[in-house]
């Protein structure tokens, strides 16, 4: 079964996030007071993913756990999603 993983990665609170700080300042001009973190999202679609395997990949490669936190979702891709995807491809 093909699965889709979405990995969310954010800088840890103790690591200054210059992009987040810059956005905070800019958002003030839009009348929004916010605490902002800029991270990244990685999407993987694969037949070979298990939760354990994905977690291992995150710790070994996708994430530097000294400076970043991560979370992920791992879901089966529904048939109709797959067809859409194939059409696009």
């Amino acid at each position: 079964m093909k699965k889709r993983a979405i990995v969310n990665i954010f800088p840890k609170p103790e690591v200054l996030d210059p992009q987040g700080r810059a956005l905070e300042k800019s958002l003030v001009r839009k009348s929004v007071q916010a605490e902002v973190l800029v991270g990244k999202v990685i999407q993987l679609e694969s037949d070979d993913l298990t939760s354990e395997k994905l977690d291992q990949i995150c710790q070994d490669f996708l994430v530097n756990t000294l400076t970043e936190t991560y979370s992920f979702t791992l879901d089966d891709i529904k048939d109709e999603d797959l067809k859409d995807h194939q059409k696009k491809a």
């Binding site: 800088p11 690591v15 200054l16 210059p18 992009q19 810059a22 530097n64 000294l66 400076t67």
Partner: peptide, 16 residues
């Protein structure tokens, strides 16, 4: 640092 051969990490300059 990424290899763990040295402690710590190097992240983006404060100024960006």
């Amino acid at each position: 640092c990424e290899l763990g051969a040295l402690p710590g990490a190097l992240v983006s300059n404060t100024s960006g």
